[in-house]
């Protein structure tokens, strides 16, 4: 099924604020990382954390329906 992705910060600049991707529901977030890094060339150069439904997700958790948020760390201060 189609999932909406929201990118932030430098990832938004590189890939756009909103994108979509075809994924199977129920895959683990560790697999999601591989799918994303295959689909978006250069994403693996960045550290990032993934969130869904208002919560950051660990690699072991499973993807559910809803928007996937991709957050990189910021360094400015």
């Amino acid at each position: 099924m189609e999932f909406r992705l929201n990118f932030y910060g430098p990832l938004e600049e590189r890939f756009g604020a909103h994108r979509t991707i075809q994924l199977e529901e129920g895959i683990r977030f560790s697999e999601l990382r591989k799918e994303l890094e295959g689909a978006f060339n250069g994403l693996d150069a960045y550290p990032y954390t993934l969130a869904q439904d208002g919560s950051m997700k660990s690699d072991e958790e499973e993807l559910s329906r809803g928007v996937i948020e991709v957050f990189p760390p910021f360094s400015g201060g």
Partner: peptide
């Protein structure tokens, strides 16, 4: 929150 530190100046 951010387990893996950046390895280069990507950010």
């Amino acid at each position: 929150l951010f387990k893996e530190p950046p390895t280069d100046a990507a950010i």
